[in-house]
Structures are given as C-alpha cells and as structure tokens.
Amino acid sequence: MKSLRVINLDKFFGETHALDHVSFDVAEGEIVAVLGPSGCGKSTLLAVIAGLEIPNAGEVQWDGKSLASVPSYKRGFGLMFQDYVLFPHMDAFDNVAFGLRMAGLAPEVVRQRVRETLALVGLPGFEKRDVNTLSGGEQQRVALARSLAPQPQLLMLDEPLGSLDRTLRERLMFELREILRRLHQTAIYVTHDQEEAFAVADRVVVMDLGRVAQIGTPQAVYSRPASLFVARFLGLDNLLPGKVGKDGDQFTIETPIGRLSTFEQGLGSVTVLIRPDAARLDGQGELQLEGSLVKRSFRGNTCRAVIETNGVRLTFEFLSNAPLPAEGERVRLSFDPAQAIQILR
C-alpha cells in the first residue's frame, strides 16, 4: 500500500516557525484537506512534501522510504500551484505535455495522454489555445490537467479554487472531487475555506501557526473541534468563559449565563462552546435560557438570531420557518446539553 507519511516536520524561515512538528498520514486513494488561515504554513508544507523546500528537521516518507535524498523532479508527485503558474510561453498542449516529455514518453503517447487529460478536465480540443487568453476557470483546468497528466502518485493542490468567483468555485469543487475519485487519486488539498475542505476531503488536517491543531473526518472536526482555535476558525463563535467546580458529586460550570452541569472531570478555567444549531424553541430541552432577541437576519433556508442574555450575546441558527419573535422581544430557548454544550480547554 503506497502511502505518504509526514513525520515531525520542522521548518523555519528566519524567525518564523513555518512548520512546527507537523505529522500526519495520507493513505492510498485518500483525499486529505489541509485547512487553515493564510500564513499557517499550508503552502510551506506542500513545498516540503514536493521537495521544493528542505525541512530543518523531520522527514517525509513515501511507501515507507524516506524522500530526504530524492530531488523534487524525481519524486513523481504532482503539485497544482495557487493561481496555476502555467508556462506563459507554451500553449495548453505544451503545458500539459511538459511532465510527460520530461518523463521521456514517446510523442504519440504524449499526444494521446494530453488529449485524454484535457478531455477529463472538460477542455476537449483546447490543445492549441494560448494559455494567456484563457479564462480563470479554463486556466484552472489546464493547470489540473498539467499536474494530472504524468499520473502522479500523489497530487497536491494549493488553493486550487482560490482565485475563482463563488459560483464557479462551487461547481468546480464537486467536479474536482469527482475527477479525483474516479482516478482513485491520492491527494492533499490545501485550502482556507472550510466548505471546500469538507466537500472534497475524506479527512481534514486543521493547521494553526505551523502546528497541526486537529485531524479527523469533516464530521468529527465540525462536531467536536479540538481547540478554541479550531472552533473559532470553523465559525463557532458562542464561546463563554467558565469555571468548573464541584457541587457534591456533581461537576458544574459557572458561566455568565448561569450554572451548567457537566460530566467534565478536572477543575479550573475552561471555555464553553454552545453550538449555534442546537437551540430549540419548543421548550423540550433540559437546559433553559431566556433572553431578548437583539437581531435576526434572513439567510435563505436558515435564519440567524442574536440573543442577549446576562449581557452576553449568542448567535443561533434556526430554520427560516421557525416561529421566532420580532426583534427586541423576549425569547425562550432550550437545549439538550449533550449536543449543545462542549467544553474546551
């Protein structure tokens, strides 16, 4: 089984610690998304795996063997750069053929493979087009074809949809996943957009300041963020300071919105996350909360409401048809603590 193994990578640029003990695996045929804000070290990570940068410490292994002494042009990996970096002095055909020619394939094989790959990415007949005149979406596809054509063992995509507009991005997101799936392509997909990461990847590696913050399936990461950073990065903003205390046998947390019971062991200061999608209006939840509805905004099939209680503002999402009161009125919410409350340290 050919898999990628990244072990304890460390990379410094001057004072900046771009990669800080980064470790993770990518199994054969798996798509792993590396998700994080800009400057978190994602692109550096790809450059190190591709062999374009030399790590200060740690190792990249492929198929159980270290790649330390393998130069990038012999690794057989593909890298699709952010904003594509197509060769401007070549047409679409020559761009896609570049890797095949470097591999020394016969001209008719090259021609055949380029045609197939361009068709695969949805650009049949684009061979003679000048890449400088292509639209953003077309350039993106040529770049994808260029990195796919040599049939890389591992394909890395650096913000492949970053410079496209929203509609095009959503369409290409699913197309891209479809193509990668069909080829059973092992891939690392770097993005700062959680929607993209969740839609494309089997597993997500969340990075922050050069460190791995969390690894897991999209569902696991979203429903159980491992740290305050991950929660904030995923847009989970209902975060309250809390203090775990003990009331007899029962652990409790003091928060600005009242005392919550918990199974959490261990005393001290924590952060309490209240999930925005867990509020109920039917009063059936175990935990009750009353406040005034400060603001409501309509967002298509959902509706976002800001509720103020005890001087704290919390944001919740409801279905659009939920019976929310008007702005400025009182509202009574209830929660199922097991779903709605999460303790972060």
């Binding site: 591709a50 062999g51 374009l52 890298l79 970096v85 060769f87 002095h89 570049f98 470097m102 591999a103």
Partner: peptide, 27 residues
Amino acid sequence: IDPRLSAAAQVLGADQRRRLRHVILPL
C-alpha cells in the same frame, strides 16, 4: 518572473539543466 514557474517544472520532473533550457531561458 514568478520563481514558481521553475518550481512547477521541477515538480513535473525537470532537472536544473532542463528547467534552464525549457522554462527560464525561453522566458
């Protein structure tokens, strides 16, 4: 000139000599 053009050629299997010949010099 974007140095990533050279990096792109590198990842696609071009050693230094061929990067010079096929990418850098033509550009």
